[in-house]
Amino acid sequence: MKSRILIVLMTGLLRAFACLPYGVVARIGIGIGALLYRIPSTRRRVVHTNLKLCFPDMSDEERERLARAHFGHVIRSYVERGPQWFGNARAISRLVEVESAIDLAEAHSRPTIFVGFHFVGIEAGCMMYSTRHPVASLYTPMSNVLFDAMAKRQRGRFGTEMIPRSDSVRRALRVLRDGKPVMLAADMDFGLRDSVFVPFFGVPACTLTSVSRLAKAGNARVVPFVTEVLPDYRGYKLTIFEELSNFPSDDATVDARRITEFLETQVRRIPAQYYWVHKRFKHRPVGEPAVY
């Protein structure tokens, strides 16, 4: 009962945010993030651990500034679920500018996997794409069943086919064969199964091989994309890059390393916007100590 009431209140709040000007919503998120950062928490410790591992040459003051900025971005991204999940297609399209190195119409004439990364703007980019083009999206179900149902419904309201990871391979292959591109992200630690350790900023990171395996099984090209938050509350920019050449290879580890190297390049460009609150190094190679 309490969970249901919480979902109703949260849904009402997100709907209210969808009615406010985007700049107001963004500033509310930044403000809440600044307040929450002052409170010691597990997530704040995770952010600092990740930054220390990935940017050992940074001074403590530099990492502190980066952590503060990141916390603001993360909480802002949660608040901005309001206009993303409950705004209309026109409003969402106005918020996101698109720069694509490929002909997006062609994405429906050949099997295409759009591989994204967990920058704070990923939700906005995926939502905007779905207002213009048919697409399927792999997602990880949330622990709260009611909230998961609401998120799945709102994310798919423009026609996106939502595919849970537990059922991903069979359904994703069917979608690809039917001429619909698949969006997924494989830059989080989901455990040792179907994963390999590859360096992420020089630190061994447990990395899924799903992109390589799905591309090979579906004879699909792999196209990276990144959504970034633009300065001065101007919204977002969705950048769709050229397809990865000679991908997949015959070695899933090599493929995972290539994708991770591409991700590193983008993180260095907008470091405050990557999802440092995630325990990226939760699983460790045999013999190496835990870091969290």
Rank of each mutant, 00 (worst) to 15 (best):
E99I: 10
E242Y: 12
G191Q: 07
E288I: 01
G31D: 01
T49C: 14
R234H: 14
E243N: 12
L244C: 04
I113W: 01
P83L: 00
V46K: 10
H70W: 03
E106K: 15
M127G: 04
A18M: 05
M127W: 05
V98P: 04
V203I: 15
E123C: 06
H108M: 09
I7M: 15
L146W: 10
D57L: 11
S77D: 02
E99R: 14
M162K: 10
R68T: 00
L53Y: 13
T260C: 07
K180R: 13
K282D: 01
I122R: 03
F119Y: 09
D194K: 13
F247G: 03
A26E: 11
L35S: 07
D251G: 07
G202C: 07
S59L: 09
R171H: 04
R45K: 15
S3L: 12
S249P: 08
E123H: 08
V277H: 01
C206W: 03
I163T: 05
S166P: 05
G23L: 11
L192H: 11
R110I: 08
V291H: 04
F190L: 13
E123T: 13
E99K: 12
M58D: 06
V79P: 02
T260V: 12
R193K: 15
A217N: 08
D187P: 08
K279F: 05
F247E: 00
V182H: 11
T253F: 08
K52S: 15
F119Q: 02
P248H: 04
R90I: 09
Y233L: 15
R44Q: 10
N144E: 11
A101E: 14
V24Q: 06
L13T: 12
L230F: 09
P224E: 02
F71H: 04
W276T: 00
H283R: 12
L146Y: 12
S210W: 01
I32R: 03
S77L: 05
K52R: 15
G29Q: 02
L104M: 15
S59T: 15
P83V: 02
A136E: 12
S166I: 07
P21H: 05
G202W: 07
T209I: 12
L14T: 03
E161Y: 07
M183S: 07
D232Y: 15
F197K: 11
E64S: 14
A69N: 08
F119M: 08
I39M: 13
A272F: 00
A256G: 13
A89R: 04
F158T: 03
F55S: 05
A220M: 01
L138Q: 02
Y275L: 15
Y129H: 11
L13M: 15
D57M: 09
M58R: 09
P83H: 00
V120H: 03
F71I: 06
G202T: 07
F197I: 10
D194H: 11
